[in-house]
């Protein structure tokens, strides 16, 4: 049995903001730099971290292979994971939008084709507006799909809007507001209650310091 609480951190755009948040909460770690080990600990040896691909984090947390994780709400809403989501961390803030080529009126498109990495989120979005869209699932670089004629529009994350502009796309409608969340394994929440609760309290204090 582990004595530390094992927490998954997302590789990529959320990694540095996540480490920054942990450090403001008094949990300091070097982020495993220079180490070839799979996991790294905080300076007090209470927490252990592992960097994983964001989309894999809920899978690890749901199964209990890791106790908790930090992951974007875009990934959590795309699949049903049975995990607790006790805290919105307000990092990695961005929007998920429906974006079409400049000058295209989607209302006039008869059989709308949407390219996205988030097929379930996109399907739900159109269903809620009583529209049907044919969803094309892509792994990345979704913004080029309209240019090549694969789709009429895309559903994707937007941080600054630069990628959209560079590819001649305009955000038509917001799908959701995206932010990173703390997620916790359902069994760890019960069997490691003290450690989990103190982590939530530490992070909550930092995230909501001004409110």
């Amino acid at each position: 049995m582990r004595t530390t609480l094992l927490i998954a951190l997302p590789k990529g755009r959320l990694f540095d903001p996540a480490l920054g948040l942990l450090s403001r909460a008094g949990i300091s770690t070097d982020g495993g730099q220079g180490s070839r080990k799979l996991t790294f600990q905080d300076s007090e040896g209470i927490y252990e971290f592992v960097a994983l691909k964001p989309a894999d984090i809920p899978v690890y947390v749901e199964s209990g292979a890791v106790d908790a994780g930090i992951v974007g709400s875009d990934i959590l809403r795309e699949q049903d994971f049975s995990v607790y989501e006790p805290l919105d961390l307000h990092i990695g803030l961005c929007r998920m939008v429906l974006a079409a080529q400049d000058g295209v009126d989607l209302q006039q498109v008869q059989h709308m084709r949407i390219a996205t990495k988030y097929p379930r989120t996109a399907t739900r979005f159109f269903a809620a507006r009583s529209r049907h869209a044919h969803i094309v699932r892509l792994e990345g670089s979704v913004e080029i799909a309209p240019l090549l004629g694969l789709a009429d529009a895309i559903v994707d994350l937007v941080e600054t809007g630069r990628t959209l502009r560079e590819n001649g796309l305009t955000a038509v409608e917001d799908v959701s507001r995206v932010s990173a969340k703390l997620i916790v394994n359902r069994t760890a929440m019960k069997t490691r209650a003290g450690a989990v609760r103190s982590l939530i309290t530490l992070l909550d204090k930092v995230v909501y310091a001004n409110s």
Binding site: Y84, E85, P86, D88, M189, D204
Partner: peptide
């Protein structure tokens, strides 16, 4: 309630 996010 099931998510256990007190603030939300």
């Amino acid at each position: 309630i099931d998510h256990k996010d007190a603030r939300a």
